[in-house]
């Protein structure tokens, strides 16, 4: 009888542990059970990525459609080469889409916004977005503004 209460207590503890792990996984870290490891990779070159990091969002009209999987330097063009993983269900991005680096809020995180184009042909595994717009770097902007003020 004594052993039974102990076993119930231990069972409750382990159950609480499992529930906590699931809560941490789903509610706190937002781990999605649907497999989004699939999808296809596209590339884009930017002149300045200004604080974009790996795992940053890639969004279309504000909805996340993928994430940044790698950032390298293109040693030939001397530009940042950003590799993005796009969810496989988003297979309708036309080949002349453009990519911009945007900021969420004034001081928020950087993310990539895709603006769709008009071509029939769509982006495939390994395609490259040619039309890109770099991040807005606050210091450069202020510098330009001051320079214009002085030259007036």
């Amino acid at each position: 009888m004594q052993m039974r209460t102990l076993e119930i207590g231990v069972g409750a503890l382990i159950l609480a542990g499992v529930i906590s792990l699931v809560t941490l996984a789903i509610n706190v870290s937002g781990l999605s059970l649907t497999d989004r490891a699939g999808g296809y990779t596209i590339y884009a070159r930017f002149e300045n990525i200004g604080g974009l990091t790996e795992r940053a969002k890639v969004s279309l009209s504000g909805v996340q459609i993928g994430e940044v999987s790698a950032i390298r330097i293109d040693s030939r063009m001397l530009m940042a080469d950003v590799e993005m993983r796009i969810f496989s269900e988003v297979d309708y991005l036309s080949i002349d889409s453009s990519a911009q680096i945007l900021t969420a809020g004034l001081l928020g995180e950087k993310y990539i916004g895709i603006t769709p184009g008009f071509e029939e042909e769509t982006l495939k595994e390994g395609s490259r977005i040619e039309d890109t717009q770099s991040a807005l770097v606050l210091e450069e902007l202020i510098g330009k503004f001051l320079f214009n003020k002085v030259s007036e």
Partner: peptide
């Protein structure tokens, strides 16, 4: 038991 207690702690704290 310590890892289980840790997870419970984190969830209750959040």
């Amino acid at each position: 038991s310590l890892p289980i207690l840790t997870m419970i702690f984190a969830v209750v704290g959040i």
